[in-house]
């Protein structure tokens, strides 16, 4: 058995005009907790969509491979795709309304695909909803998704993913629509799940405090590439990429000064030229110099810590 439950190597994806993912390599160890962080538009979700065969119609994988539990995940089709991929991955999507069928009651969406009998499945669903701090699971189960609030729908999505008892759980921004106190509970739930034997987690989140509490390995993505990777301590303790540093300094804010603007990273993720071998962050980078326009490769900083930046920052 592979020590990596999910192993993505050199993944490139492009649409008819431009490259969207460039040479993305990342892995989740069996029982490991890997997080991908980065601003929206950096390719975090696109990477997941390649794995789940849900890329937009005009986007294709142009290079690279994805191995999931020993199988070539990109080559799976039909029944094998369902059995070997979808039933083995619990996926909590980002857009809570898109991932639920609007015309089916929550109870059916939680139980239909379950191999358990209907009664058992309903009991399990009820227990799951309760563990997600839903006080009246009966009402939620007999509701349609449109009758629930955003935070409720997000928890229903989590319950759908957990019903399968899949070995890999993928959570794409799982806490963004939750109230602060529910977010705490959900975090504890994820911590509990991860400590349960065998469950691996791939987490996508912009909530770095959540990532810090959950993950053991972190990838920082920018403009379709991984720009820094390493263990949690390596990436947050000794951040080597200016982009990682900027993200970390933003998440440190919790007492906000009304008299001044919030800190932001000026500009936005560049839209074009992701295939360019130079540094895509240089237009926003406080350390930018002429070297940044040369072709870059990864620098090894010790352990499993790699960075794609030519500066040696203290």
């Amino acid at each position: 058995m592979d020590s990596r439950i999910l192993d993505i190597q050199g993944l490139c994806a492009r649409d008819s005009v431009e490259e969207l993912l460039v040479d993305v390599s990342l892995h989740v160890d069996a029982g490991g907790r890997t997080a991908i962080v980065g601003e929206s538009g950096c390719g975090k979700t696109m990477t997941l969509r390649a794995l789940l065969h849900t890329l937009p119609p005009d986007v294709e994988v142009s290079a690279g491979r994805i191995r999931f539990m020993g199988e070539d995940a990109l080559a799976l089709k039909g029944e094998a795709l369902r059995k070997d991929l979808y039933m083995r991955i619990g996926h909590v999507g980002q857009n809570t309304s898109e991932n639920l069928h609007p015309l089916l009651k929550v109870s059916r969406q939680l139980t239909d695909f379950s191999p358990l009998g209907r009664k058992e499945a309903l009991e399990k669903a009820t227990a799951l909803l309760e563990s997600l701090s839903i006080k009246d699971p009966g009402r939620v189960l007999s509701s349609y998704p449109g009758e629930l609030s955003g935070g409720m729908r997000q928890r229903v999505n989590m319950a759908v993913a957990l019903m399968k008892d899949a070995p890999l759980l993928i959570a794409d921004e799982p806490t963004s629509a939750l109230d602060a106190h529910v977010r705490r509970q959900v975090e504890e739930l994820y911590q509990g799940l991860c400590e349960r034997e065998g469950l691996s987690l791939l987490l996508i989140s912009h909530d770095l405090s959540f990532v810090r509490r959950i993950a053991d390995r972190v990838y920082v993505m920018y403009a379709g590439r991984v720009v820094e990777e390493g263990s949690l301590d390596e990436v947050f303790g000794e951040a080597a990429h200016p982009y990682t540093k900027a993200l970390a300094s933003l998440s440190g804010r919790r007492s906000l000064d009304r008299t001044r603007d919030l800190d932001e990273i000026g500009g936005s993720v560049p839209d074009k030229g992701r295939g360019d071998p130079s540094c895509a962050f240089s237009s926003r980078c406080p350390y930018a110099a002429r070297d940044c326009h040369n072709a870059l490769s990864y620098r090894h900083l010790g352990g499993s810590h790699y960075v794609r930046c030519c500066h040696e920052l203290a």
Partner: peptide
């Protein structure tokens, strides 16, 4: 209505600064 809750902190800050 929760207009920045789904956004990254850096973009949250951009939107909030813009609204201000």
């Amino acid at each position: 209505d929760e207009c920045v809750s789904a956004l990254d902190l850096s973009i949250q800050a951009q939107i909030i600064n813009l609204l201000r």
